[in-house]
Design a protein around this nucleic acid. Structure first.
Lengths: 121, 121
DNA sequence: CAGAATCCATTCGGATACTG
DNA sequence: CAGTATCCGAATGGATTCTG
């Protein structure tokens, strides 16, 4: 346990930095830490209304269960919308919600940078 | 929004757009997907030369083994530098490398946004 | 086509205890 | 102080199979 003398209710100054709240971050960051979560978000953002197969292709090596789970998570979190058309053959389209779009804007620079680092091309 | 391709090829034919490079991303993104990795990066960036204890305090609930592992990973990846002073008591300082700094710049907007989403206060 | 359901190997991360 | 070492339960992600 943190030996927190109840004399200082406030956070111990971490050297006057502007770190006001690097708190838990359970929610979103937790989700984004799941494999492919960030990539899926950016991919969907990049290709707009994206069908399952398209997303799958983009990754190539992901298993359907994993990708499916991730898409679910993102939909649950309100970052993606899922529209299902009951046609034959069935068609489903994922799209960024507004929140998802906000996220993607912040994610894109990161992923692009990451690609450079990993010597992608 | 971001770019202004004067010699832009043409409409975003996503099918064959430049997003064909949302490739593996094994390296950096894989590391960043480990718990606390992004947060640690930002925290170290925020408080500059950071001692182990300081980082630990910032999180409060992380176990030493986990944090230690994460720091190791980040050092290995060349994102953090680790300077050890053989004094008594021992002192170790972590700092962002230049690469780490590049990362942090891209990470900060993300974390700040994430905090808002999670309704931190 | 777009998954849901299962099963399972692996990994991760937390707790605990112990050093230089 | 700043970790490392170890053990172990929990969670994750992959393969496979099946379905509307």
């Amino acid at each position: 346990m943190a030996e927190t003398p109840d004399t200082s209710p406030d956070a111990p100054d971490v050297q006057n930095a502007e770190i006001d709240c690097y708190c838990p971050l359970g929610g979103v960051m937790d989700l984004l830490s799941r494999q492919y979560a960030m990539q899926v978000t950016c991919v969907v953002g990049a290709i707009g209304p994206a069908r399952y197969g398209e997303i799958e292709e983009t990754f190539g090596e992901v298993s359907s269960s994993t990708l499916s789970t991730r898409l679910d998570n993102l939909v649950e979190a309100g970052l993606l919308s899922r529209e299902q058309y009951n046609e034959i053959p069935p068609r489903v389209e994922y799209e960024l919600t507004e929140t998802g779009e906000e996220l993607r804007e912040r994610l894109d620079p990161l992923l692009e940078w990451a690609e450079e680092q990993d010597d992608c091309d």
